[in-house]
Amino acid sequence: MVKEIERAGIPVVHMCTVTPISMTVGANRIVPTIAIPHPLGNPALSPEEEKKLRRHLVERALEALTTEVEDQTIFEVK
């Protein structure tokens, strides 16, 4: 799906846990996430901490969208 969005001319970032699959399907901007059942959350954290984590991940995805890439790129989350 990312590829069809990209093909339509819209930049897209793929947030997913299994980044090798994302590479295989051809996403160009990739942000690794936490876990398969909760990519953008961590139930072990308090709700406040969890939202902070989610915001951190989303901000990384926005950074990816504002970064020019030539090829498939994984934007590791610090």
């Binding site: 990312v2 093909r7 339509a8 819209i10 970032v13 947030m15 997913c16 846990t17 995805a61």
Partner: peptide, 23 residues
């Protein structure tokens, strides 16, 4: 097929970028 279709809707609506999440 799904994405090719809704990408056109996104384009028509003037969307500049997409965040796709996967589990």
């Amino acid at each position: 097929k799904f994405a090719a279709e809704y990408a056109q809707k996104l384009l028509a609506a003037g969307v500049d970028a997409v965040i796709m999440t996967s589990t």
